[in-house]
């Protein structure tokens, strides 16, 4: 496309807007000097006129209102959707990218000891119950039964929890030990 061609320059203008009188005069001279260009020019003009008068779709009356409602809906967060995360962000400062990782690590630090303590306490309770179960038949029948190792009684809590099964459990244990003797 040659910019220096006056007809092309006029086309560049007429594609976007009608020519001014000065531009029209200049074009008329160029068209007179260039054989066969008049028909091509006329077609261009007709197409421009056709496109220019092409009916526009009617904008709905509620268009702007609908846009504002859509903005409310899609862009501005609703109050009921506010989460703890949003509350944190309300400080105005963006949260650092490592924040979620730290939060998970903190939760694990609290949860793991709690689980360990729970499991350990449960283990002691089960040991105490097994001692009671074994000690009672030994005391009643007088059979020598293999008891758990004495070292478990170093843990005071095992003896203490025996009361959960019988109020006299510690006394029964003592009697059993005396009975089975060395």
């Amino acid at each position: 496309m040659k910019e220096s061609n006056p007809i092309q320059s006029a086309l560049d203008i007429v594609w976007r807007r009608p020519l001014t009188p000065v531009e029209t005069d200049r074009l008329r001279e160029s068209l007179a000097a260039t054989a066969g260009s008049r028909d091509a020019w006329e077609e261009e003009q007709l197409l421009s006129a056709l496109l220019e008068r092409w009916p526009e779709p009617r904008v709905p009356d509620r268009f702007t209102l609908d846009v504002l409602e859509a903005v409310e809906r899609k862009v501005v967060p609703e109050p009921r959707r506010l989460s703890w995360w949003t509350w944190l962000r309300w400080s105005g400062r963006p949260l650092p990218s490592w924040a979620p990782g730290v939060a998970v690590a903190a939760a694990l630090l609290v949860a793991l000891p709690a689980v360990w303590l729970y499991r350990h306490a449960d283990e002691r309770t089960r040991l105490a119950a097994s001692v009671i179960r074994i000690a009672q038949p030994v005391h009643q029948v007088g059979l020598a039964v293999q008891l758990p190792g004495v070292e478990i009684f170093r843990d005071f809590e095992v003896i203490d929890r025996m009361r959960q099964f019988s109020a006299l459990a510690d006394e029964e244990l003592l009697a059993s030990l005396e009975f089975s003797g060395p």
């Binding site: 779709p57 904008v59 709905p60 268009f63 609908d66 846009v67 859509a70 903005v71």
Partner: peptide, 28 residues
């Protein structure tokens, strides 16, 4: 800009209700 944007979207997709949606989405 609602009229020129609707003109463009309507002529591009050829369906008025879709063109309105596209024009609305443009402004959103």
């Amino acid at each position: 800009y609602r009229q020129p944007i609707l003109n463009l979207t309507y002529r591009m997709v050829g369906d008025l209700s879709e063109a309105e949606d596209l024009a609305q989405t443009t402004f959103v």
